[in-house]
């Protein structure tokens, strides 16, 4: 009697054991499906857009999506994105790298444990809060310095975006610098170098791949950033390089258009996906570049 019970148990278990990995695999494939879904939605609806709008028009400077005779030149969006991201990098690169050097080479580990989390708090603040900060605090401050500045402009969200991406630059570069082995540092000190000389002539060159990758990832984050530019940079579709003027980025265009201006099925609606596809390709390329840099130029110690 007990024997049959025993054999039944053995037979029962492997069945379940075989089903579990299949269930887990199906769930795990959701993430792959998400990627496929993203690419499909973007490509399918963007192709409807490109079927009606010629490429020559896409790369022109006239963006009038809501007119009766609309024209879709995306250059204003592309320059808007590049200009705001550039301003952000001009803020984040020097501040991020100097604070990383300071954290990794000058500070005692006790101080580092206090200061690093404070900097990382900046990364945890939602972007909508930065948007409010840019519009209600930074723009009025800048207006006192630059009287010509409009209430909506590219400068203020650029600067705030730079502050937002400082933690990315700082913590990734700091990681790269602290992974340079200590004997290299000590060798340089043994030759009589000052801390600054060790940092700039030995540590930074050894960690350069990690630092460059951090910059590229920060750029990618700035390109994909949405709420700060939507709030503080306005929705002007003029083609301009003047940072005192309002500009629209690709992300802000998507937000503006989904808020109900274009009905489903119109070219304006499909232009959303064309811009989304461009944005996706931009960020994918920068992310791949960052991964390539870390992989190819990393020094193994």
């Amino acid at each position: 009697m007990t024997d049959t019970k025993y054999t039944m148990k053995i037979r029962k278990t492997p069945m379940f054991e075989n089903i579990v990995p299949i269930i887990l695999f199906l769930i795990a494939s959701i993430s792959v499906l998400t990627s496929i879904g993203i690419v499909l939605t973007l490509v399918v609806d963007a192709s409807r857009f490109f079927a009606e709008v010629p490429f020559s028009e896409v790369f022109s400077t006239k963006l009038e999506p809501l007119k009766k005779d609309p024209s879709f030149g995306f250059l204003p969006l592309i320059t808007g994105t590049i200009v705001t991201s550039l301003i952000a990098m001009l803020v984040a690169a020097p501040l991020g790298i100097t604070s990383a050097i300071f954290l990794s080479e000058f500070m005692s580990s006790k101080m580092r444990r206090i200061i690093k989390p404070i900097i990382e708090v900046l990364a945890g603040i939602p972007t909508i809060v930065y948007g409010f900060f840019a519009y209600n605090t930074v723009t009025p401050l800048l207006m006192k310095l630059l009287p010509d500045l409009g209430a909506k402009n590219a400068l203020s969200p650029g600067i705030v975006m730079g502050i937002m991406i400082i933690p990315i630059v700082t913590s990734l570069s700091e990681d790269a610098m602290s992974s340079v082995p200590d004997y290299i540092r000590k060798g340089a000190y043994g030759l009589g170098s000052t801390k600054l000389e060790v940092a700039t002539k030995v540590i930074v060159p050894s960690a350069i791949s990690g630092i460059v990758a951090a910059f590229v990832l920060a750029i990618s984050r700035a390109i994909g950033e949405t709420m700060i530019v939507t709030i503080a940079s306005g929705s002007s579709k003029q083609f301009t390089l003047d940072i005192m003027q309002p500009m629209q980025t690709m992300t802000a265009y998507i937000v503006e258009f989904t808020s109900g201006d274009a009905g489903s099925g119109t070219i304006g609606y499909y232009s959303l996906y064309a811009v989304g596809l461009m944005l996706f390709i931009f960020t994918m390329l920068t992310n791949l570049l960052a991964r390539h840099i870390t992989k190819k130029y990393r020094r193994e110690y």
Binding site: I38, G224, T226, T258, G276
Partner: peptide, 9 residues
């Protein structure tokens, strides 16, 4: 690395 706006789309 995909921007959140794309997830919105």
């Amino acid at each position: 690395g995909v921007p959140s706006v794309i997830f919105g789309l």
